[in-house]
Design a protein around this nucleic acid. Structure first.
Lengths: 153, 153
DNA sequence: ACAATATAGTCAGTATGCTGATCATCAGTA
DNA sequence: TACTGATGATCAGCATACTGACTATATTGT
């Protein structure tokens, strides 16, 4: 009898679910309403101002269709500015606003705490090993996703 | 500089993404179009015929709102029958159809293979340890999800 | 220069998940 | 019995993700 609750795929789904809930709770405590995906996008755009949407998607392993909506919402919240690229009129260039930068820095500690909370079921000694294996396992299946990571970072 | 690509939350999102893609690919090879969530629901209903939606949701850690739509689609595909409970007119009782049972059994090997593929980035020795840690970590954050697992199984 | 191809982005449609509200029904109690 | 609260299910609305198709613009090859 193969119980779904012992299958990696099902465990991953549940863990992801909880991880999003934890992130949301921490961020809400500070009075913000940013999703993990939105946060990751902001963080990457800060690191590489002027990045276009497809490159951004590659750097954080998003689907290029999804990124459009994410950027829309961030622009709407005035964390971002999206402009047509001067060198390629197909491309949209992304930059953080001042509010975007402030928000990102203000949320950083809460995001770090959320990561710790996600690992709180493990012994301190197990946590590092788990993250190592998670990185390795994720790297192993990277190409099987529609939105693989492309680290030209 | 804390890169999101080293954060557990971000890794688990990516891993989940790939895991769904792998599942979908394997199932599509057999000519089916079932999602991981739909498969898990079918598997649990087979194990407990006549289960109601809330109990089902608890057993596989779904949100009770989500389960409605999942069941809708499974009913539409004629894998399931949903009837008003004889003992509690609020509740909907779920049972597999013959097609549902056949499909479930036909997909089982592909689902097993998908689980193996998800772990393929790890050494054989690491896989068991990873699954153990994943189970432990997931159990540790179970209560922080809106849809915690309730195993009265 | 022109045709073929590739790329950036969007749109429509579908499936999970969530929040918060509502409705119907059930169970316990005054 | 009538009231109160709890519970099963649904609905509206939003945010990720996916598929597949489409437009506009660049690039490449002849």
């Amino acid at each position: 009898m193969t119980d779904v609750n012992t299958m990696p795929g099902h465990l991953i789904r549940r863990y992801h679910q909880a991880s999003v809930a934890i992130f949301h709770a921490r961020v809400a405590e500070l009075g913000y309403d940013l999703t993990p995906v939105q946060y990751a996008a902001l963080a990457k755009i800060e690191a590489q101002p002027g990045i276009d949407q497809v490159t951004l998607a590659g750097l954080i392993a998003y689907d290029r269709t999804t990124i459009g909506g994410v950027v829309d919402r961030l622009v709407q919240k005035t964390y971002l500015v999206r402009e047509v690229s001067a060198t390629d009129r197909r491309a949209r260039v992304l930059k953080l606003t001042e509010l975007g930068v402030t928000t990102l820095h203000r949320l950083a500690p809460a995001v770090e705490e959320a990561q710790q909370t996600m690992l709180s079921g493990l012994e301190p000694g197990e946590q590092a090993e788990f993250v190592r294996l998670l990185q390795k396992a994720t790297a192993g299946v990277n190409q099987m996703s529609r939105a693989p990571l492309k680290e030209t970072d």
